[in-house]
């Protein structure tokens, strides 16, 4: 990274960490195939790399049962192996190779699960954590480094059991002043991604259809942090602040909060399953305390 003359690092040099949703259960349900989608994404990555010769791109795959680094433009070993004849530039030869490997492995792991819901979530918390570790390493490398940002290309629904981990990542990104951009291509809206972009000062956008994805990606998400000060990027059309309850991992907009540890529950309990405090009579709200409710002893989102 630091091999190039340091003077060249102006404020518009970017490090883009792309979190690519490869969840097979999501891509089974879409009209656009994964390979069509991928061609938009690769063209976008090419465009980002072309904008500035010092720009750097890292791709992390967000799978259903695992996450892994797929591509890092700062590694020279990426070049070559054009023999695959896929028509893609040599630059992305290894990306496609690794991605194919990854999806194969990921699907293999997914098969081990007996029951799989309609659309299972992908492991956003894992890829976000990895991206932040990578960015932290770039910060360690010295004063001169590209300006990092994260882009989540996500289609799978939120995994409420990842709530605490995703929020932890968001706060760490906020502290590092790394914006998390998000492009949500699924059908529901994603409370995770809306909050992530809102809290870290990134851009959130949910294109209605995937045909013009390349245009969306280049006009919105290719803008470097310096340029963002001068251009009009989409403003958030509201932020979904719903949280996940610790008892059933449901997404809720109203719930009961333990005054001792702030754990969130979707229904009234007599005892907090996180910190063990026994609650006094609830004078608030007159909600009939469902006393028959089971004391589910769960250690909550420790995912």
């Amino acid at each position: 990274m630091a091999s190039v003359a340091s003077k060249l690092y102006s404020d518009d040099v970017s490090l883009l960490v792309l979190l690519l949703d490869t969840n097979p259960f999501f891509w089974d349900t879409t009209s656009t195939t994964f390979s069509q989608f991928l061609s938009h994404v690769l063209a976008f990555l090419n465009a980002v790399l072309g904008l500035n010769q010092l720009n750097q791109v890292v791709v992390i795959a967000t799978g259903y049962s695992s996450c892994d680094y797929i591509y890092d433009s700062s590694l020279t070993s990426n070049v070559g192996s054009e023999s695959r004849g896929s028509g893609m530039p040599a630059l992305f030869g290894s990306l496609l190779e690794k991605l194919e490997d990854f999806i194969g492995r990921d699907e293999e792991l997914a098969k081990e699960d007996e029951h799989v819901d309609k659309i299972a979530p992908s492991l956003l918390s894992g890829s976000l954590s990895m991206a932040l570790c990578y960015i932290q390493r770039v910060f360690r490398s010295g004063h001169l480094h590209p300006q990092p940002r994260i882009l989540c290309l996500q289609g799978s629904p939120d995994g409420p059991e990842q709530y605490v981990a995703v929020m932890n990542s968001i706060f760490s990104a906020q502290r590092l002043m790394v914006p998390i951009d998000s492009c949500y291509i699924g059908t529901q809206n994603s409370a995770f991604l809306q909050q992530a972009s809102y809290i870290t000062g990134g851009v959130h956008h949910a294109p209605k259809q995937l045909d013009g994805l390349f245009q969306f990606l280049t006009t919105i998400f290719a803008t470097d942090l310096h340029t963002r000060r001068f251009v009009q990027l989409p403003k958030p059309v509201g932020v979904d602040f719903r949280a996940s309850c610790f008892c059933h991992k449901k997404t809720i907009d109203m719930g009961y909060v333990c005054s001792v540890c702030l754990s969130i529950f979707c229904e009234h309990h007599k005892k907090c399953s996180t910190c063990g405090s026994v609650f006094g009579q609830s004078k608030l709200d007159g909600a009939n305390a469902s006393s028959s409710v089971n004391d589910r002893k769960r250690k909550a989102p420790d995912s």
Binding site: Y198, K235, P236, V237, G238, V239, D240, F241, R242, A243, I252, D253, M254, G255, Y256, V257, C258, S259, V260, F265, H268, H269, C272, S277, V278, F279, G280, S282, L284, D285, A287
Partner: peptide, 20 residues
Amino acid sequence: AEFAISNLIKMGFPQRAAEG
């Protein structure tokens, strides 16, 4: 900690409306 009665408080998590 021993002074206060622990309690379960009903709370809402409102959505933020669109800018403008």
